[in-house]
């Protein structure tokens, strides 16, 4: 009798956990599904590749897509090298002293800083002090600080996953530290580092707050000409259409379309990161150290 009550209790509790989980997934799918349904209607080749028309009430979102592309590419250029170098230093060289601890603590804190605070920093330093103005340069520098900790910690994880025996094997052959890192560690970590960069790309593409005052404009007549041009950006465009728009009936559908494009972009980026990692992991299992 007691056994039965016990298993009933377990059954009920687990059923509840499962129900909450399904509910959560349902809501999240509902959100994406809702946007997908509404957005699919406006999505077309022209929507993606045309300029906006009639003061943003018709036409496409091409400049916003292009702007986001520029911002993402530039921010990766700025953050990838210091990010990967930092991960290598901490994992392969880093003496266990206070300086490494400080670097690690800084990274952790940097990753927790609200993105709007990065935006203010970018405004005060890049836009005003260094005089880059509201521009691709200012925006991508700001974004690069946002994604720096993301790249560092993902790269570190990749380096940590490489068995110690690989380092020992190389050093025992008379290789120096750098020869080991360059010839043995980095080639093995490349897929994971790529994943780290892709995760950074996804993050940079979706961030709005850091570019609010550093790069983005609601409307610009022409496509950006240089890194000192201000740009339209996809996430900011969505925000601006629904909050600053003057003709909601015609602008909300555009916002749906833009949301779908952004959502697709981010999901494709994340999926490719997950795919590369999964593939790499199964390749790794073969080494079996």
């Amino acid at each position: 009798m007691k056994m039965q009550a016990k298993s009933l209790r377990q059954y009920a509790a687990f059923l509840m956990v499962r129900a909450v989980f399904l509910f959560t997934s349902f809501i999240l799918l509902l959100i994406t599904g809702f946007l997908l349904l509404k957005g699919a209607k406006v999505l077309s080749f022209d929507f993606i590749f045309k300029m906006p028309e009639n003061s943003m009430t018709a036409g496409g979102i091409f400049p916003a897509i292009l702007g986001t592309f520029y911002l993402v590419v530039m921010s990766i250029i700025f953050s990838a090298i210091p990010g990967i170098a930092c991960a290598i230093y901490l994992n392969e060289y880093g003496p266990k002293g206070w300086i490494s601890t400080m670097i690690r603590t800084s990274i952790n804190n940097l990753s927790g800083v609200p993105s709007i605070v990065f935006g203010l920093f970018g405004l005060a330093v890049f836009v005003k002090k260094l005089g880059f103005g509201v521009s691709i340069l200012s925006g991508s520098l700001t974004l690069s600080i946002v994604i720096l900790p993301v790249i560092i910690s993902s790269t570190r994880e990749a380096l940590m996953a490489i068995p110690q025996s690989m380092r020992e094997a190389s050093m025992a052959l008379g290789a120096t530290k750098w020869e080991t890192v360059w010839n043995i560690i980095l080639p093995q970590a490349t897929p994971s580092i790529l994943t780290a960069i892709i995760i950074g790309i996804g993050r940079a593409a979706g961030e709005t707050a850091p570019i609010l005052f550093t790069a983005a404009v609601f409307y610009s007549k022409e496509l950006p000409r240089s890194i000192f041009s201000e740009v339209m950006a996809l996430p900011y465009h969505i925000y601006a259409l629904v909050t600053e728009g003057t003709a909601p009936q015609s602008q909300i559908p555009i916002a749906y379309g833009a949301s779908i494009v952004l959502l697709f972009l981010v999901i494709i980026i994340s999926l490719s990161a997950i795919y590369i990692r999964q593939k790499h992991r199964s390749a790794y299992a073969k080494i079996g150290h």
Binding site: M166, E168, A169, L173, T176, E179, H289
Partner: peptide
Amino acid sequence: GMVFQKPNPFPKSIFENIAYGLRI
């Protein structure tokens, strides 16, 4: 030189495993 407890070849080709030590 040293040979370890567990075989630890690099995840490279058989030839490259040997060539690496020579090159460095």
